[in-house]
Nucleic acid binder design. Sequence first.
DNA 1: CCAAAAGTGTTATTGATACACCCATGC
DNA 2: GCATGGGTGTATCAATAACACTTTTGG
Lengths: 222, 222
Amino acid sequence: MDTNKVKFEKASVTVDVLIFTVEERDLKVLLVKRANKPFANSWAIPGGFLLKGESLDEAAFRILIDKTGVTDVYLEQLYTFGDPERDPRGRVATVSYFALIPFKKFAEPSSPKVSEIKWFSIKDIPSLAFDHNKILRYALSRLRAKVGYSNIVYGLLPERFRFSDLQKLYEVVLNKELDKRNFRKRMFNLGLLESTGEKEVSGAHRPAMLYKFKSREVVFFD
Amino acid sequence: MDTNKVKFEKASVTVDVLIFTVEERDLKVLLVKRANKPFANSWAIPGGFLLKGESLDEAAFRILIDKTGVTDVYLEQLYTFGDPERDPRGRVATVSYFALIPFKKFAEPSSPKVSEIKWFSIKDIPSLAFDHNKILRYALSRLRAKVGYSNIVYGLLPERFRFSDLQKLYEVVLNKELDKRNFRKRMFNLGLLESTGEKEVSGAHRPAMLYKFKSREVVFFD
DNA sequence: CCAAAAGTGTTATTGATACACCCATGC
DNA sequence: GCATGGGTGTATCAATAACACTTTTGG
């Protein structure tokens, strides 16, 4: 192949972070409304340009803190999107990450530049800026696959939770119903959970035992 | 966070492709000896800068063809490495891919710029340029995980192969021995293979039936 | 006593593992 | 006839799937 006349191209590198949480037993993703062109007023995945001296992981972490104030978090690189046409401003490659945070830790963002920021149910996603719908679909498929062979859902839950919260979370992520008894059996057999001994301050029904993950580190199984 | 005084940084984007094959029942990866600085004379993963108008996948494909002449191939994006210190020339983010090719299709490369090119057994990898040892370790762990729940090994095998070739391949990739009867049972149960009806032109032993994958498309199972 | 969610066991089926001998060929 | 790799079956165990009733609380 003759490459003599073809030019290399410096690209801008952005890092986008898909921030997921569970609220009201529903899986939600944090989106921002863009203030500037291109795609002004469109909703988009939060992100930003890579800064001098910053690693990709550091940039993802910075964006996450900027938007949510959360630091104790599960964060994983997802995929890199680099189609030459994906950004009208020029060649921009986006390294996408996904983050899982417990809703309770979320604090309103400090960043003044963002005009608006909002949690969207994954069942109700509008048309997004750039190729962000595609990125979100990719993130969801990774998340769905990964909950099947790892404990990463710990990132979505508070320290202590009811068993039914955990089950509901799996049901929402996997988009299918699970049998209560089989689910409990399997979860206990994996040996990742422990009872806290405490019970929820309950409603008009039998109070539920509260559980926690033995370890808030990623564990793979199967 | 005050970002007013921090500068954005344009980065060069390179695409590196880990090209795997099986030869002599051993898993091998293609490395090139670098002609130029930095790391002149070190072995490295083949790669190159992203060209104008080219998508990441296209760049990976171009590099692969350039080095091997192979076009019918399994190719998958792996991970993006972007530490600010990883290349002494400046900020370079590398999007890594891995490719699986059947050894028979390999043709000597047409590219005149490469000083040397060589297959290395994965058991015998030297110290590589940049952070390429780390990238290779990552690729191997992805490959090992993925053969467990997909049929991607089809990419490493010729059209028709003996069952024992397939088993040996799994053993090399997973670095452990497998039981012959259980392995055959499982493979047949997955329903991805079919007999070609033909037998190998054999050596001093009973001739082996030759099999092929029903589909040379990625299939996931489990 | 009624509504609401928590909690609990058994059976059937499937997939994984462990294991040893005969077969077809070339020389 | 012997050396070389090809090819086959059974029994045990573990994990998964299907399935319905009782318990504890608040109001």
